[in-house]
């Protein structure tokens, strides 16, 4: 069995949501980094183990009544803006 070597590596995602979220939400979102943007949105970013974990996070966004704006995958070398 040969899988692409990076498939088991966590991928870094950033999730953009409307409004400013205080940093205490970091734990709620499985340890993602909370960054407030000047345009009134919040970036949640960090490694996500797999697709199931990503959908789990998106469900949390939905269930907390947050407005989802974007989901991006960023390559591990590239730093979050």
């Amino acid at each position: 069995m040969s899988h692409p070597s990076d498939s088991s590596q966590p991928v870094v995602y950033e999730i953009r949501i409307a409004g400013h979220l205080s940093s205490q939400w970091s734990e709620w979102f499985a340890g993602l980094t909370v960054t407030l943007d000047a345009d009134g949105t919040t970036w949640l970013s960090g490694p996500v183990i797999d697709q199931a974990a990503l959908y789990g996070l998106l469900k949390k966004v939905r269930d907390t009544g947050l407005t989802l704006i974007a989901v991006n995958q960023i390559s591990s070398k590239q730093e979050h803006p």
Partner: peptide, 8 residues
């Protein structure tokens, strides 16, 4: 005026 997430 706040930029905090409303619900929070």
């Amino acid at each position: 005026g706040s930029h905090h997430f409303v619900l929070d």
